[in-house]
Design a binder for these strands. Structure first.
Length: 275
DNA sequence: AACGACACCTGGAGGC
DNA sequence: TGCCTCCAGGTGTCGT
C-alpha cells in the first residue's frame, strides 16, 4: 500500500509523537515474523534506555534514529501502520508488536496482512539497506540525464522499471500509473526506447504526482492511515489509478485496466498509445 | 538479464 | 445468508 508519500506521512506523524521518547526495553509481540523471528527480549534488550532522536524516510522505509548506534527500521508493506497509545490501552485488532516507552506509552505496529517488518539495524546493516535502493525521486541531485542513462541500460518495460526500488526509490503501483498517465507513455514502452525528453517528462511527472500526494497526506484506498489514524485524500485526485471505465480527464476515452508485471495497471489507450 | 509464477497473509467486495 | 472467487498500496525467491 504505502508508497513514498504515505510512508513519509506515516514517518512524520510517528516522529512527531515519539522523537525525544525513550524505549523501556519491553517488547510484546504476537506475530514473530514481524520482527523477523528475532526473540522479542533480544530486541528489547537492545532498545532498553535508548532515546529516539529523530525520524526520516528512505525509499519506503521508516527510520527512527536512536541515541545508540542503532536505527529502528520499519517497512509497512501493504497494510502496516503505527499507533502510539498508553500502555494500559486495550490491544488493537491486528496489532502485531508493541514497544514500551519510559513515559508510559507504547509504539504499536498494526498490520492486517502481516507483511510488514521491523528491524533494529546497526550502521553496517543500514548502509546495506541504503545501497540496495536507487535515488530518491524528490532529491534534486537526481537529474533527468542520470535517469535517462539508467533507463537506457535495459529494454524492460518502463512500468516495472519505475517499480524497481533499485532504479528509483519510493514509487509504487499507484504513482507509477499516475506518472505514466501524466507523461502520456504506455507502461509497456521499453525503457531504452524513451527519448531524453520523455524521460524528463516522466521524472517531472513523478515529482509532481508525489509532491501533490505529500500535500494531501497520501492516498487511502482501504487500509492506509498515518500514525495518528488519519486518512489521506490523494485518492480524490487520481487521474488513472482505480478509474477503470471512467473517462480520461484529458480526452474522455474510458480508462482501461490491464496487467503489467503482475500488477493491475490503469491507463488511457488514446493518450498512452501502445509502443 | 529478465520474466512469470508463486509465496507471504487477511479480509472486503462481488457473483451466484 | 452462505459460499466461492478474485483482488489489494509490496517485495522476495525460484525456476525457466
Amino acid at each position: 500500500m504505502p508508497e513514498l508519500p504515505e510512508v513519509e506521512q506515516a514517518a512524520r506523524t510517528l516522529g512527531e509523537q515519539v522523537v525525544g521518547a525513550t524505549f523501556d526495553g519491553s517488547v510484546r509481540c504476537s506475530w514473530g515474523r514481524t520482527i523477523d523471528s528475532y526473540d522479542p527480549s533480544v530486541i528489547g534488550a537492545r532498545l532498553a534506555d535508548v532515546k529516539i532522536t529523530g525520524w526520516r524516510r528512505r525509499a519506503k522505509w521508516i527510520l527512527l534514529s536512536l541515541s545508540s548506534a542503532d536505527t529502528f527500521v520499519a517497512h509497512l508493506r501493504m497494510t502496516g501502520r503505527f499507533v502510539v497509545c498508553q500502555r494500559e490501552d486495550m490491544d488493537i485488532p491486528q496489532q502485531r508488536v508493541a514497544f514500551g516507552l519510559t513515559d508510559g506509552r507504547e509504539i504499536r505496529f498494526v498490520d492486517q496482512r502481516k507483511f510488514g517488518r521491523i528491524y533494529v539495524m546497526d550502521p553496517g546493516q543500514l548502509a546495506e539497506l541504503d545501497a540496495a535502493h536507487g535515488p530518491e525521486p524528490l532529491d534534486d541531485a537526481l537529474t533527468a540525464v542520470q535517469f535517462f542513462a539508467r533507463l537506457q541500460q535495459t529494454q524492460r518495460a518502463i512500468k516495472p522499471m519505475l517499480l524497481d526500488q533499485s532504479v528509483i526509490a519510493g514509487v509504487g503501483n499507484i504513482y507509477a500509473d499516475e506518472s505514466l498517465w501524466h507523461s502520456q507513455i504506455h507502461p509497456l514502452t521499453p525503457a531504452n526506447r524513451l527519448t531524453l525528453g520523455q524521460v524528463e517528462l516522466v521524472l517531472q511527472s513523478i515529482r509532481t504526482v508525489l509532491r501533490q500526494a505529500l500535500t494531501n497526506g497520501g492516498s487511502t484506498l482501504r487500509d492506509y492511515r498515518d500514525s495518528y489514524g488519519a486518512k489521506g485524500t490523494q485518492q480524490d485526485n487520481f487521474q488513472a489509478y482505480d478509474r477503470t471505465g471512467l473517462p480520461c480527464y484529458r480526452c474522455g476515452t474510458p480508462i482501461v485496466k490491464t496487467v503489467v508485471a503482475q500488477r493491475g495497471t490503469h491507463l488511457c489507450l488514446a493518450c498512452q498509445p501502445v509502443p
